[in-house]
Design a protein around this nucleic acid. Structure first.
Lengths: 210, 210
DNA sequence: TCTTATACGGAACATTGTTCCGTTTGGCAA
DNA sequence: TTGCCAAACGGAACAATGTTCCGTATAAGA
């Protein structure tokens, strides 16, 4: 547990698809297929929710269910792996935005990116509360990867004088999640709109001390 | 919809087990069995959670699954019916407490009663958020029956000068629910204890205007 | 008592998670 | 390049569970 939290971002990202160096080597096709599986699962989860049958996922990836179960001990672990990978991708996108855009724009873009991530996770909340041990580590992972990413963008925007400084990264994350979680049928854009509103709010009272 | 909300408590209670007067009469054994089914389901849900298999419920009630499905179109409707009936029972218990005990004691007893009800509903939260239309009317039913019940007890206790008056029934209900919902293994009494603490809090600052 | 609409029991069906094992194949050594 | 074999794959088979169907039993009115 302590070891886990001491790893840096790059190491943890790599773990998703490649085994640790001292383990027995993974066959190239297996790694490729694991990747295809995760990609297919992500797409199926986005279109059908996380309750989609494993057969549908295996088929979308072009494999039999046996292959799926070779890579994941059970359905819940597959879901968790997809979530972790997406959390990582979302967190990692922060540096790209920061490099390619002005501070506040990068912050705004990332917030939308996170909003879309949450919105395409129908069933995430239920999964987290299901009590399945496969999901036990997810909340920690969310916090470990997403908070630093947002904090960096926020700090940069604050330093450039474009964002107010009395907002916590934690609060922003959970606010966005709450806004986009229950993405009801009608008005699929509602979540994004409300997040944009939040973003605009960050521009105001820039000078306010507290 | 509008009609539904205009019915009084007694009428709605009766509906759970007997059909409306102008409908075709229900055979006596059917009514008896429906009742047995609801009782059995309540017990199974309390011991195994709402995810218990329908076969287990039918068996506990001493029936075949066919009988269960004769009374409920599907599993979700059975769950909803059990919840409604329990909400009604909990709400109705308020007048009994009010009649048999001093104001504040009645209030405290009902709060514990409600706490136990919530605590024995493992899976309730997930069910409510599952999106199944069978559960769509439950939140409204909760509010319609429980809030007036608590409000009555609270008003009486306030009138007798035993409870402070700056607390909303709504807030109390949701606070108790939150305290008792995640009734984790160890310390099964924790929820009740925290509710008792809340109750004690109601006794303080009785004179405070707001 | 007789009749019949109603209710019941439980086998059968459909869907899904998971396991098993025969077949195929990537990667290394000769 | 060829041959070997551990690793990986495919998908049938199994298990658990929600739901349907229909033959049998029965309440209740004539």
């Amino acid at each position: 547990m302590a070891m886990d939290s001491s790893k840096n971002a790059a190491e943890k990202e790599a773990e998703v698809t490649t085994e640790s160096s001292h383990e027995k080597p993974v066959r190239a096709d297996a790694k490729r297929n694991l990747d295809a599986l995760l990609v297919a699962a992500k797409e199926v989860f986005a279109s059908s929710g996380v309750d989609a049958p494993v057969r549908e996922i295996a088929q979308k990836a072009g494999f039999g269910v046996g292959t799926l179960y070779r890579h994941f001990p059970n359905r819940a672990e597959l879901i968790a792996a997809v979530f972790r990978r997406e959390v990582d991708a979302c967190a990692d996108s922060a540096v790209g935005f920061a490099d390619a855009h002005p501070p506040f724009e990068a912050l705004a873009m990332w917030m939308q990116r996170y909003a879309v991530f949450i919105a395409t996770k129908r069933g995430l909340a239920s999964a987290l509360h299901s009590g399945d041990p496969a999901f036990a580590s997810l909340p920690g992972h969310f916090d470990e990867r997403l908070r630093p990413a947002l904090q960096m963008l926020l700090d940069t925007a604050i330093a450039s004088g474009e964002a107010r400084q009395d907002i916590e990264a934690d609060d922003l994350l959970s606010a966005i999640a709450r806004l986009c979680m229950a993405t009801n049928e009608k008005k699929p854009k509602q979540g994004e709109q409300m997040v944009a509103l939040l973003t605009d709010g960050l521009r105001h009272n820039v000078d306010r001390p507290n």
